[in-house]
Amino acid sequence: MASVVSVEGLRKRYRHHDPWAVDGVSFQLEPGQAFGLLGPNGAGKSTVVKIIAGLLRPDEGSVQLFGADPGNPTARKDLGFAPEEPDFPKFLRASEVLDYFASLLGLDEAERKRRIPETLQFAGLDGERRQVRQFSKGMKQRLGIAQAILGRPKLLILDEPTADLDPLGRRDVRALIDRLKDSGVAVLLNSHLLSEVELVCDTVAILAKGRVLKEGTMAEVVPEGRSLEDVFVELVQASAPPRDQLPSFITDKDKS
């Protein structure tokens, strides 16, 4: 069976003299697999998922989405993408945003009428009449996940999906990922919340400074008796200078 996503030797930098934001990343994602992309801030996780979603162009290497270039709109037909800090046209309501995006997905009117109310209900936004500009961060995040699943994707990319959600919302997202995995949907989860990744992902890759430090199944990456957090901290600290020193003005006993 063809890979859902195939990333090979991916490199990307934003400006010519900048360091590589992504430096030689390779991995594959199969149907029904939940893949966790982990890393500290600035590791290049969001850059990788944006390239897969066709939003950024790679400088080197290749990315295939359902066997095609992600820049090709038809390759994105079966993609659901919930971005980090999602935002939407400010003056639209949640139902209008979903109708807009459903139209972009090519859903006919009957299908839109069927899916939109159910999706709004799932996201806890049914009956919400305010415009997006009046939404809280959490509501935008819920709407971000709602629009990502609207097209019944075969690949769901969740970039920090639970960062602004309350515990109930987090539980709903975990349940959603489990259900989608069972139905053969591939999930690419990009998250800081290691406990969450440990719960839902089969495979993980740990990134730092744009490079993959370790990749494999959860059992391969996390040895018996250790947690994902232990492995993550150890790997990331080994790749960067320690940051456990507090500023001197905090530790100074002689306060002036």
Binding site: P86, K90, L104
Partner: peptide, 14 residues
């Protein structure tokens, strides 16, 4: 500017 384009351009629209 708002980031709405991220969601829009990830859809199958040229």
């Amino acid at each position: 500017d708002s980031g709405a384009a991220v969601s829009i351009f990830s859809k199958p629209v040229s």
